[in-house]
Computed example of a mutant assay.
Amino acid sequence: MKYFSKASSSSKNNASIKIKESEIVFGTTPESADHLPNPAELFLGSFSACILKNVERFSVLMHFEYSTAEIAVNAIRLDKPPRMDEINYELKIYSQDKNLNIDLLKKNIEKFGTIFNTVKSVCSVTGEIKQITE
């Protein structure tokens, strides 16, 4: 598989990434730090998207139903060299389904996620999945 995106920025302004029919605006200036995502946050967003896409994928393969999935991701950045060092996630799956096997789902997400595997090859990744039956 091959992927493509195109990004641009202008001096002393923000930037955007174009992917298919979507445009994602992100901050590159101190003035945008409080209201636009920065590149590190976009990176964590991609990690989150990978996991959520795999929840949907494995709900079909593992034969379980869910109403909503939510993920929160925290990261620790090192300064020298600047890089992500630790990533921790908490995935909540709202489901009444007794067929939801959390351990197998976690194993599959961590084995077959493209972004997940790319990230875990360069930094520590830990996480927890919780089934919420409310």
Rank of each mutant, 00 (worst) to 15 (best):
A7P: 11
S9M: 10
S9W: 12
S10K: 14
N13Q: 10
N14C: 10
S16I: 00
I19W: 05
I19F: 11
I24Y: 13
V25K: 08
F26K: 05
T29L: 01
S32Y: 07
H35W: 05
P37M: 08
N38R: 15
A40M: 09
E41S: 05
L42S: 03
L44N: 10
G45N: 10
S46T: 11
S48M: 11
I51L: 07
L52G: 03
R57G: 00
S59G: 00
V60Q: 11
L61Y: 04
E65M: 06
S67M: 02
E70I: 08
A72G: 08
I76Q: 12
R77P: 00
K80W: 04
P81G: 05
R83Y: 00
E86V: 15
N88M: 06
E90M: 08
L91D: 12
Q96N: 13
D97Y: 13
K98G: 05
K98N: 13
L100P: 04
N101S: 14
N101D: 15
I102Q: 09
K106Q: 14
K107A: 14
E110F: 05
K111Q: 15
F112E: 05
G113V: 08
N117A: 04
N117Q: 13
S121K: 12
V122W: 00
S124M: 07
V125K: 02
G127A: 00
G127E: 01
